[in-house]
């Protein structure tokens, strides 16, 4: 006599190998949002004019609220569409998230051997380096995603740089830069003494930013509301300005977690 729970477990075991089947992903040319199709020649001209106007230099800028901002231009797909048929960059960033000392990024590239070099700079010094591999390269455009961590204790403005190494002469090419604000020093880990399930919170106005293990978070405290569906371990949560209570809700499992700063911390499970 088997129970429902037994059957559930058996089916999950049975289907586990399915995870090894590679997913399909959209090729960049199939990802263009309707209404974002630019007229290539005119826009190509406009982009080139912009580069000329900037003296050919990469201009970097950050926002006052500490949120990341692209150092070159908005990396949203509008750029993808703009440059698709003219001078599309070898590397494009499509999303970026700063989680305490970690910078997470998503993008696409058509680069030699699909390898994108990644580093963080602060004050001219390289403080972290890594690389990611796109799903396709050397003549075809693939997607990539990855993260890079600054060392513990490093915080403040920094620049994320993505580039390639030339196969011909070893020179750095195709540089894309993005200003970020690392927040290692100002973030507090909850629960403070465990690695698994730990997340970081930091008050930024009435919203805090948290890193959670595989959560989908929807948050509302009084008039403060934030909702986001997130990848892997990043979520926005809200803080009650009067009580400093932090609410993290995961709609996927239908459970809400109320975390009181400085008080007992409930178990986080997604």
């Amino acid at each position: 006599m088997t129970t429902t729970a037994d059957d559930e477990r058996r089916v999950e075991d049975l289907l586990a190998p399915l995870a090894a089947i590679p997913p399909v992903t959209l090729r960049p040319e199939r990802r263009r949002a309707p209404g974002r199709t630019w007229r290539p020649l005119l826009v190509g001209f406009a982009c080139l004019a912009g580069v000329v106007a900037a003296g050919g230099a990469i201009v970097t800028a950050g926002r006052d609220d500490g949120a990341p901002r692209p150092a070159t231009s908005d990396p949203a797909p509008v750029v993808t569409a703009t440059l698709a048929e003219t001078v599309r960059p070898a590397i494009e960033l499509t999303a970026i998230e700063v989680v305490g000392p970690r910078v997470e990024f998503v993008g696409n590239a058509d680069v030699f051997e699909a390898t994108v070099q990644v580093r963080l700079r602060q004050g001219g010094q390289v403080i972290a380096e890594t690389f990611v591999t796109a799903t396709c390269g050397s003549g075809c455009r693939g997607t990539f995603e990855g993260s890079i961590d600054a060392a513990a204790g490093v915080d403040g403005p920094a620049t994320l740089e993505l580039f390639t190494i030339s196969a011909e002469d070893g020179a750095e090419r195709d540089l894309v830069r993005w200003d970020v604000v690392l927040a290692a020093g100002g973030w507090t880990a909850y629960p403070p003494s465990t690695d698994s399930g730990a997340f970081y919170v930091r008050r930024v106005g009435d919203l805090v930013h948290a890193a959670l293990p595989s959560c989908v978070a929807t948050v509302a405290i009084g008039d403060i509301e934030a909702q986001t569906t997130v990848r892997d371990d990043v979520a926005f949560v809200a803080i009650d300005p009067e009580t400093s209570d932090i609410l993290v809700a995961t709609t996927r499992v239908g459970v809400e977690y109320l975390i009181t700063v400085g008080g007992p911390v409930p178990e986080i499970a997604c």
């Binding site: 089947i21 997913p23 992903t25 569906t229």
Partner: peptide, 8 residues
Amino acid sequence: LHERRLGQ
């Protein structure tokens, strides 16, 4: 963010 899971 969900493209790969959707694709799978």
